[in-house]
């Protein structure tokens, strides 16, 4: 007799019965189910179970993967839009292939080159006095 049954004789009535039951024919079907799982395991080398242990792990792994994927995608997306560096060659190419107005109003104004500018003559005089071939500069601009 169990210790508890000695202390509580009324428990002798249930004789260690838990009160749990299983669906009809459960154990016969259970062994067949295990056979199927075993053959799957043999074929694939592993066993996919969406049972209690794997379900949360799969969910965590999937969430983690998605977070990482979004982070990486976002990083490259924003990096391309915001921080792309142009080389000097890129800029020159851009100016050359852009229309004349832009060239005239943009870069040329910055260089302060104007045929009608009063300062232009002074500059040319200075270049002649210094024996500098200004035609090269003019060709450049």
């Amino acid at each position: 007799m169990n210790d508890l049954d000695k202390i509580m004789p009324k428990l002798k009535k249930i004789k260690g019965n838990t009160g749990f039951k299983v669906p009809e024919n459960y154990f016969n079907e259970f062994s067949l189910k295990i056979q199927e799982l075993v053959s799957k395991t043999e074929k694939t080398g592993y066993y996919y179970s969406f049972g209690p242990k794997l379900r949360p792990r799969l969910a965590y792994a999937l969430s983690f993967f998605l977070i990482i994927a979004f982070t990486i995608t976002g990083y490259f997306l924003f990096r391309d839009n915001g921080t792309r560096n142009y080389t000097t060659e890129d800029l020159i190419e851009y100016i050359i292939f852009t229309d004349d107005d832009l060239r005239n109003t943009g870069l040329f104004n910055e260089l302060n080159y104007n045929e009608n500018n009063e300062n232009t003559d002074e500059i040319i005089e200075y270049l002649v006095s210094e024996n500098i071939d200004y035609s090269i500069i003019l060709e450049e601009y």
């Binding site: 009324k10 428990l11 009535k13 249930i14 019965n17 009160g19 039951k21 299983v22």
Partner: peptide, 13 residues
């Protein structure tokens, strides 16, 4: 549905 114990079973569990 798979528990059919009486009150004593329930209390023990």
């Amino acid at each position: 549905p798979y528990f059919d114990g009486d009150e004593l079973n329930l209390k023990l569990q």
